[in-house]
Design a binder for these strands. Sequence first.
DNA 1: CTATGTATTTGTAGTGATTACAATTTTATT
DNA 2: AATAAAATTGTAATCACTACAAATACATAG
Lengths: 138, 138
Amino acid sequence: MDGLVGKITAELLKKNIKPSYQRIKIMEYLIEKNNHPTVEMIYNHLVKEIPTLSKTTVYNTLNLFIEKGLVRPLTIEDNEARYDTIISNHGHFKCQSCGEIYDFPVEIDDFVPDKLQGFEIADKNVYFKGLCPKCISS
Amino acid sequence: MDGLVGKITAELLKKNIKPSYQRIKIMEYLIEKNNHPTVEMIYNHLVKEIPTLSKTTVYNTLNLFIEKGLVRPLTIEDNEARYDTIISNHGHFKCQSCGEIYDFPVEIDDFVPDKLQGFEIADKNVYFKGLCPKCISS
DNA sequence: CTATGTATTTGTAGTGATTACAATTTTATT
DNA sequence: AATAAAATTGTAATCACTACAAATACATAG
Ligand SMILES: [Mn+2]
Ligand SMILES: [Mn+2]
Ligand SMILES: [Zn+2]
Ligand SMILES: [Zn+2]
């Protein structure tokens, strides 16, 4: 008995999403890896377990999760979307050498500048780019 | 005699960029409009004046400007790059209704979290999404 | 001024991530 | 078991962007 799968199933049902095998597996990947993956990464990993898996299903499922507020899409590079299960506001650092994406805390709610009085803010994003310690020391 | 064209010419020469007609026009558009345009917007506007203009030239020129540090690319949506002549760190708000992108000041240098000690930060980005006042009141 | 070489521009073809859509398979209901 | 609805799959289409080679404009030497 897998506790994570149980939690995922409950979470999906709470959002009126039918907990299909594929959907559970995709959510499981997102939570366990917690690596801000691309569609490609998700597909390549899961297709070993689910040989019939279609990349379209991965896209569809992620878009469904986004719609229901379970997943947040990250736009850091313009040529590859990334996905995060952690919805709360935090910043992302992408290493330009190894490509890894690191989380970092940031008090985004602190800086709502006067300039944005009268604006309705739905979504806040902070991302940095550069080199991570591993890549600097090698 | 156009003062802006003179300034642009000097600016390009300073960066070892030959100030061709197309390059000057593209930079002129960026500075005058100051609207974080897409390639499409730049092309559609300038092709009226320069009927032979190629979209490839717009792409090439923008990439050259980025390389030389004259322009900063904005990745807000994953399906359309935007370009900004203002290099200094500031935030961007994109209205999800009208699509307009607003600047706002933000003290990005203030929040370099402890988590990023040992990281080499090359680039900082802050962008919000939501509704602008115009769109809220209509 | 003309010839030759270099840089810039242009048009077309290619790429790669994402979406559209119809067919197939799975799941739920009677 | 029969039927309907939902989910998954595969393929084709889309669209921003890039690669590349031909054409044009520019510079420099004779
Ligand atoms: Mn994250
Ligand atoms: Mn700006
Ligand atoms: Zn790295
Ligand atoms: Zn608006």
